[in-house]
Write a protein that binds this DNA or RNA. Structure first.
Lengths: 227, 227
DNA sequence: ACGATGCTTCGCTGCCGCGCGAATCGTCGC
DNA sequence: GCGACGATTCGCGCGGCAGCGAAGCATCGT
C-alpha cells in the first residue's frame, strides 16, 4: 500500500497511450480552447479519414479525456473537463525549454487569451494577482473562493454574475507567464461576465481576447495592473 | 503560425508514447520522489529483465525525461528536472476523480510529503500561503521570488540558507490539496533548510515528511497555519 | 589475472494497433 | 419516401515495438 490517490503505472500508461498518437494529440490540441467540434472537423484537423478519426475519438471518450454532445446527425466532442485542459497546458509547459518561454511576437496572445473558457495571459495573471492582493479571493478547502467583499467590488464596477458562493476556482499555471491565474468554474464565470459586460471580446480566428477601453478602465479601477 | 510556445501534435505524441508503456511508467513513478536509482533496481520495479529495462531507460533518456549519472559500474537514473516531476504530478491529478481526492487514511501523506525535493501536502500549501500573505513571496518575471523581508523573517526564526536573490520558485499544484505550493529551486532550497534546521525529517519508507515539535512551533510563529 | 557483477547491445519472435476502403446506421432536406 | 450527408463499424494489411535470451563490454573484488 503506497500513496493512495496517486496514479499507478497502468493508469499512467493508459493516459500516455491516449496521447501517443499524433492524430489524437492533434484532436486534443484543437480542443484546448474549450470549443466543441464535430467529428468530421476533428478528422480534418488530424489529417485522417473519418473512419480513423472515429476510432480515435472513441478511445479518447472511453479514456475519459473527451465528452460528447449529440445534436442531430452531428456529434460534437469537447474536452471532458478543465482538469484535462490544464493537464494539456502543463504538458505543453513541460516540453518547452524555460529560456524559450518569453517569446517575441504574439504580443496579443501573451497579453490576454482564452484558456479553456477563462482569461489567461498577462491580463489574467494581473487580474488574479489583484484579487489576491485585495483579499477578494481566498483558498478554501474546496478551491479558490470569491469573498463577499470581492463580489461587491466587482459588482460596483459593473460586473454582474450569478451567485458564486458555491462556485470554486482552481489555480492554473500560465505557459507564457509561468505564473498563476484563476481557472476552474469560478474563472469561467468571471470571464463570461466580462464578455457580457463588454470588457472583453474574442478574436474570431484564434484564442486572443481583446479588452475594450472601458474594460481596461474598469479593471484598472479594481486595482489590476493593466500596463 | 499559431500559439508560439505551444506544443505541437508530434511533440505531444512523442511525450505520450514515452509514458504509454507500463514498464516505463513504473520507472518514472519510482523516481517521482527525486531519488536516483540504478538500472537494475528500476528493472525490478518495472518487472522486466535488465535487457528490456535498458531499452526503456534509453528511450526515456533520449526523450529528455531522465538524466543519467555514471558511477563505476552503476548507472543511476533520475528525473531530468523538476518540470518533469510536476508534469507527472499534474498527470496524476488529471486521472483522479475530483470527489475521490480527499482520501481517508494516509493522513501523514496528505499532511506533509516530498514532491521532488520540496515540501508538499497541507503543510506545503499552508507554508506557501503564509509567504504570500506576508508579502514575503512575489511573482517576478522569472518566477516566484523571495523578498528581503521574507529572507529576514525566516532567518530570524532559525532557518538558514544560501543567497536566494537569484533563485526562483515555481507554483506546483498539489494532488491531494488541489492548491498551489512552492516548488522549483527556491522550494527545494527552503525545504533543504528545514531539514538542516531540524524542522522536518524524511520517512525512510515513503514520501512522508515528519515535522518536529520545534519545526511546527517555528512555522506557527511565521504565520503558517499548522492546525 | 580471474571470475563475478551491472548494464548494454544484438537478433529474434509475437502482438498490438494504426490506417484505409467498404459497408452500415441514423438524420436532414426536399 | 428518397438521396445526400455525417458518423460509426467491420475486415484487412502492414509497421513498430515490447519482450526475452545470449553475447559483449566495463568495472569491482580478491
Amino acid at each position: 500500500m503506497h500513496d493512495a490517490g496517486a496514479i499507478n503505472r497502468y493508469q499512467l500508461a493508459e493516459l500516455g497511450s491516449l496521447l501517443a498518437e499524433p492524430a489524437r494529440a492533434a484532436m486534443l490540441l484543437a480542443l484546448t480552447d474549450g470549443t466543441s467540434r464535430p467529428a468530421g472537423e476533428l478528422a480534418r484537423a488530424a489529417g485522417v479519414t473519418p473512419a480513423t478519426a472515429s476510432a480515435h475519438l472513441r478511445r479518447l471518450l472511453d479514456g475519459g479525456l473527451l465528452a460528447l454532445h449529440v445534436q442531430g446527425r452531428h456529434r460534437y466532442y469537447r474536452l471532458a473537463d478543465d482538469r484535462v485542459a490544464s493537464m494539456l497546458e502543463s504538458l505543453s509547459l513541460a516540453r518547452i525549454p524555460a529560456h524559450a518561454l518569453p517569446t517575441k511576437g504574439n504580443a496579443q496572445l501573451r497579453r490576454a487569451r482564452y484558456c479553456y473558457r477563462h482569461l489567461a495571459g498577462e491580463l489574467g495573471v494581473a487580474f488574479c494577482a489583484a484579487l489576491l492582493r485585495n483579499d477578494w479571493l481566498r483558498t478554501g478547502t474546496r478551491g479558490l473562493q470569491l469573498e463577499i467583499t470581492g463580489v461587491d467590488a466587482l459588482a460596483s464596477h459593473g460586473l454582474q454574475f450569478v451567485d458564486v458562493s458555491r462556485v470554486y476556482g482552481r489555480s492554473c499555471l500560465d505557459w507564457t507567464e509561468r505564473r498563476m491565474h484563476l481557472g476552474g468554474p469560478l474563472g469561467v464565470t468571471l470571464t463570461s461576465a466580462m464578455f457580457e459586460a463588454g470588457w472583453l471580446r474574442r478574436s474570431p480566428r484564434n484564442r486572443v481576447l481583446i479588452p475594450s477601453a472601458d474594460g481596461l478602465r474598469r479593471l484598472s479601477e479594481l486595482g489590476v495592473d493593466v500596463s
